[in-house]
Design a protein around this nucleic acid. Structure first.
Length: 444
RNA sequence: GUGGGUGUAGCUCAGCUGGUAGAGCGCUGCGUUGUGGUCGCAGAUGUCGCGGGUUCGAGUCCCGUCACUCACCCCA
């Protein structure tokens, strides 16, 4: 296990797990910057009313206050990165140029009961684009393509970004004369978990007729990797202008994404998304073979979230659940770090009186970009090698006045070497994330 | 917040109807006295989650409490 569960919901990885997490963070950052997103960080805390304004839903928000104040200022840890970003855009609109694109990688906090893949403190890697007044539709497809690039660069199983559009759902519900859209959305969202019959019960409990419920279920049942979903929705025979708009948008996003990144996305009309500020496209991402684990990357378009009263800043964003993804990869042993420490070389110490000579070797290696450490004690070489072995350090360097040698402790091969010219193979230079082969148990 | 399950060595767990705590892995040492991994031998380690109760006696039964975990809720 690479997860310490001392405080439930506040994960702390062991060093090997952190290697995996950092690789994901580096990969995301790299992809985001290649797509021109500027880095941004917002404060961890927001006034409570900012966090709760959108959607009365008493989100599981953590309040923050000084222990000694009886206090007034109701602050809370942010619940996601989208709402603080919307606030930031409104506050700094005068100094930003639009359309504004930024990425933001930070922790967020939610006071929900933890479970597999669900934490109270976790890291999101978020990208958003906002504009003034109107945001071009093509950005909806762009979001999915950027994330597809991230996934393509990660050592993880295939993923699929599932698309839907709130307008399609709302258009259908409105066309059916259904008033209570939110509870229908919530019921539909449970399809995978509780099954068709339970959801039908829920829908009827929400006041739908049997016929309405069946049409909602038929709609939710539509999934496709191509444009064929449009005809299947039409076949339900429901007419509504919002539906037309939603279908057109959804079709465009799907076609653009899959043209550029074949197979990266699919349409799934039962994706609803809980957050209430979404107004159009919504995204959810499954890891193939781990569909029940939950979405590792979600988001959507919000046309009315950011506003100062006179000007509205519509946006679209998507957020990678870094912590959730790491917990999936480690918890199911899908990947491992090649070693938990950066060191590629352990420089042995012959005797404490010659530690300086070992330090000098290490200094030269480091100056050439080779991470290394010096043995902590001048023990017998067997123990020094074992020290390296346990940490996964592949090479042990033996300083010797008659000529240094370096040993690859995996093969046992030991050769003469000069610190000014020797280098490990590229694959050993830094810890790597390696995919665990089927049935490959044990080992570090 | 509501309901179920679990809490014994660093880790995974065993411990039957109460009789003073065990295994595997890991760890330490030796065989091999400055070249590890395999193998063999030897060894160390526990407030049995915490508090109370019943009992001659509680890891075991009862009550409470905390933590973890699963489900609901919600979601990355």
């Amino acid at each position: 296990m690479t997860l310490r569960a001392s405080l439930s919901g506040f994960p702390e990885w062991l060093p090997g797990g952190r290697v995996v997490e950092q690789q994901i963070l580096d990969t995301a950052r790299r992809a985001f910057e290649l797509h021109g997103f500027a880095s941004l960080e917002t404060r961890s805390v927001e006034p409570v009313d900012v966090l709760l304004r959108k959607g009365e839903v008493d989100k599981e928000v953590y309040a923050v206050r000084r222990l000694h104040d009886d206090d007034e200022s109701a602050l809370a840890l942010h619940f996601d990165l989208t709402v603080p970003f919307a606030r930031y855009v409104v506050e700094n609109a005068g100094q930003l140029s639009f359309p504004f694109r930024r990425y933001q990688i930070q922790r967020v906090w939610r006071g929900e009961r933890p479970q597999e893949g669900r934490f109270r403190e976790f890291t999101q890697a978020d990208i958003d684009i906002v504009d003034v007044g109107v945001l071009a539709q093509h950005h909806d497809a762009e979001m999915a393509m950027v994330m597809a690039d991230v996934f393509a660069d990660l050592p993880i199983p295939p993923t699929v970004i599932l698309l839907n559009n709130r307008k399609v759902l709302q258009g259908v519900y409105r066309g059916l004369g259904i008033a209570d859209t939110p509870s229908v959305l919530r019921a539909i969202d449970k399809l995978d978990k509780v099954g068709v019959d339970k959801v039908r019960d829920l829908l009827q409990a929400a006041g739908l007729t049997a016929q309405q419920a069946d049409l909602c279920l038929a709609l939710a049942d539509i999934r496709s990797a191509d444009g064929s979903f449009v005809d299947r929705v039409r076949a339900l025979g429901i007419e509504d202008p919002l539906l037309d708009e939603g279908l057109a948008e959804l079709l465009e996003v799907l076609e653009v994404v899959n043209h550029a990144r074949p197979g990266a996305a699919g349409v799934d009309l039962h994706i609803a998304r809980g957050l209430d500020y979404y107004t159009g496209t919504v995204y959810e991402t499954q890891v193939v073979g781990h569909e029940t684990f939950g979405s590792i990357c979600s988001g959507g378009r919000y046309d009315a979230l950011a506003t100062d009263g006179t000007t509205t800043y519509p946006g679209v964003g998507i957020s990678l659940g870094v912590t959730r993804l790491v917990s999936l990869l480690l918890g199911r042993d899908l990947v491992r770090a090649s070693r938990p420490v950066p060191s590629a070389v352990l420089v042995a110490v012959v005797g404490e009186e010659s530690r300086e000579a070992s330090n000098a070797v290490a200094h030269i290696l480091r100056s050439r970009g080779i991470p290394c450490e010096v043995a902590p004690a001048a023990e017998k070489f067997g123990k020094q090698i074992r020290h390296a072995d346990r940490r996964g350090i592949p090479f042990v360097w033996f300083p010797d006045a008659a000529g240094d040698t370096v040993k690859d402790i995996r093969s046992g091969e030991q050769v003469g070497a000069d610190a000014t010219t020797w280098a490990p193979p590229d694959t050993d230079l830094r810890p790597r994330v390696v995919v665990v082969a089927e049935g490959d148990e044990g080992a570090t």
